[in-house]
Design a protein around this nucleic acid. Structure first.
Length: 569
RNA sequence: UGGGGCGUAGCCAAGUGGUCUAAGGCACCGGCUUUUGAUGCCGGCAUUCGUAGGUUCGAAUCCUACCGCCCCAGCCA
């Protein structure tokens, strides 16, 4: 039951998009590659949370472009804010990128690797009168910055001399000042329409332990001062980021121009991914976790990579989804149905078929000898003979899905009902002869007879049945817990009604089914293996499973046109 | 009222002056096949490209003006 090798290298080249066009144009024009001999991209997460589908889009783009143009892609942690970052996140992110199928080889970097260089470059700016130490408080800086429509005013400390700035900055590094007491600012233009150019902060004092540099530093560079410079140090040719950084590009370019950097990377922006009925911002995902609205970052309902993995979504499906949605600058929201489709697409081709009854109804085959059983051959995949067959036990007592029986079936229902005949998949035709109920009128058991001539599922006399249902032999059945998942949020865009996004949480996003009956071969299923429970959906073993108490997750259900026709009536 | 972006079907998205009375995918709707009401297959689904003008023999593609949406005032990234 192995999942076939799943390697992005063997997949088709990624689809065209405006960024690929830019890269191709740069290569054709000989604008890249003098030093790097090819294009270099990077995926630059901040280790302050787990990766989600939005990151997957960036990962697939960055690693995909690098692969298609024979370049390389680095994994770089943007670890410039020690108060939010943790080693746990670094490890989880590495695992997730690897699981998605990408390999950064030797090219693992950290912005913190560059702290000393960055520091020297900051002094370089000071010496060139392009940066100054500001004593203003955070509140004052905000006030002096002006507003969206009014220009800012220069700080009273803006024209400090080089020596004083150098002295102060060195003492900031030495830890002589408290958090927030001073900052280093670039000296650009307090009247700029682009607020990022109004003397942006380059360094702040933070007496915090950094996951990698410990207490070596008491000042830390801001994103703006670290990112582009790290790109330059690594020889990144195309620095791809999301649209909200578009306003930062002038600053990105300003720093590259004014610093003795070894290369001139360029930044390009694309729209971030939004998905219906979920949230894709780290702030909100963090809140779901810390406030226990879900059971952790890898809760199968979460749109995190680890959540999707636990739920059973194959990495190939995530890659396929990212390639299909495309890359543009238009704000867009993909429907989760699209992801579901990609998931089914992969799983339909690969997942072995099994029989499992989620809501069991006992059936006694009255004309089947008591105490006996037999083994029937069942195809592992109807469209892929190479997956072979397996044996499934059959006996006098079996379970069928409660929803596959109706005492008073409507016209288009072609499953089991009193006096009706259906096929048990891979087994026999049965006819329902008796319906047993409890005092409340609830059906508790069905009595049926089977036709021994139909072994395997075909009648020698050529008679047909409309329905084929799944079943599990009772004595050999594996009892399991099965967890079904629905959207985490009821609203397609949580929080859009001006309300708290938490108000839109779907209280029924998780249903736990106990006492489900599965065919015995499922006892051998391994963690990470996907299977289809015929007629129901794709499932996988959950990490909560123990040897005697298996737990299954429904990754995604099968398309269900019967449910649709029912809804219409 | 400043700066930066974006507007092609319910959703994603090709298209960059003529073969566009606009690809493809998702969703949806029909039909065929089917020992999964699954899969597969076939067909349908924008005379119209935010709106209004203009340029042109000819525009989704060029120009102008409007309208709408998103991002920016962290010592977050």
């Amino acid at each position: 039951m192995n999942t076939p090798p799943d390697n992005p290298e063997t997949e088709d080249e990624g689809p065209g998009n405006f960024i690929r066009d830019i890269v191709a144009g740069d290569i054709a024009a000989g604008r890249v590659g003098e030093k790097t001999r090819g294009i270099v991209t990077r995926f630059p997460p901040e280790p302050n949370g787990y990766l989600h589908l939005g990151h997957a889009k960036s990962i697939v783009l960055n690693f995909g472009i690098a692969a298609d143009f024979n370049g390389r892609c680095h994994l770089r942690f943007d670890d410039t804010n020690p108060v939010k970052e943790e080693m746990e996140f670094i490890k989880a992110i590495e695992e997730d990128v690897r699981w998605l199928g990408f390999d950064w080889g030797e090219h693992l970097y950290f912005a913190s690797d560059n702290f000393e260089t960055l520091y020297q470059w900051a002094e370089h700016l000071i010496k060139n009168e392009k940066a100054y130490v500001d004593d203003l408080t955070a509140d004052d800086i905000r006030e002096y910055r002006g507003t969206l429509t009014e220009p800012g005013r220069p700080s009273p400390f803006r024209d400090r001399g080089v020596d004083e700035n150098l002295d102060l900055f060195r003492r900031m590094r030495a830890g002589e000042f408290a958090d927030g007491e001073r900052v280093l600012r670039a000296k650009i233009d307090m009247a700029a329409g682009n607020i990022n150019m109004r003397d942006p902060v380059l360094y702040r004092i933070l007496h915090a332990d950094h996951p990698r540099t410990g207490n070596a530093w008491s000042i830390y560079p801001t994103y703006d001062f670290a990112h582009g410079q790290s790109d330059a140090i690594e020889g990144i040719t195309h620095s791809l980021c999301t649209l909200e950084f578009e306003d930062h590009r002038p600053l990105y370019d300003w720093l590259i121009e004014n610093l003795p950097v070894p290369a001139t990377p360029h930044q390009y922006e694309f729209a971030r991914l939004n998905l219906t009925n979920t949230v894709l911002s780290k702030r909100r995902l963090t809140q779901l976790v810390t406030e226990n609205h879900v059971q952790g970052w890898n809760d199968p309902r979460m749109p995190t990579i680890s959540g999707l993995r636990r739920r059973g979504v194959p990495a190939a499906a995530i890659r396929d989804f990212c390639n299909r949605i495309g890359v543009t600058k238009a704000a867009s929201t993909a429907e989760t149905a699209y992801l579901d489709h990609c998931t089914r697409d992969i799983l339909n081709a690969e997942a072995p078929r099994r029989l499992g009854v989620l809501d069991p109804l006992k059936v006694v085959i009255e004309n089947y000898p008591e105490g006996e059983s037999e083994e029937l051959d069942a195809a592992n995949h109807p469209g892929d003979e190479t997956q072979g067959t397996r044996k499934v036990p059959f006996s006098r007592e079996i379970y069928i899905e409660r929803s596959d029986f109706m005492e008073e079936p409507p016209k288009k229902f072609f499953r089991l009902g009193p006096g009706r005949e259906v096929r048990l998949r891979f087994a026999y035709f049965i006819i329902c002869t008796d319906v047993i109920k409890d005092a409340d009128g609830t059906v508790t058991e069905l009595h049926c007879t089977y036709d021994p001539e139909t072994r395997g599922g075909n009648a020698p006399d050529g008679r047909k049945v409309k329905g084929t249902i799944h079943w599990v032999s009772a004595p050999q059945a594996l009892t399991a817990e099965v967890r079904l998942y629905e959207h985490l949020f009821n609203e397609s865009e949580p929080g859009s009604g001006g309300t708290d996004f938490l108000d839109d949480i779907n209280p029924d996003s998780l249903s736990v089914l106990k006492g489900c009956k599965l065919e015995p071969s499922l006892a051998d299923l391994g963690l990470g293996d996907n299977v289809q429970f015929e007629r129901q959906g794709y499932f996988c073993l959950d990490t909560d499973s123990s040897a005697d108490a298996p737990v299954f997750n429904r990754t995604v259900g099968l398309r269900d046109s019967w449910a649709k026709t029912q809804k219409k009536d």
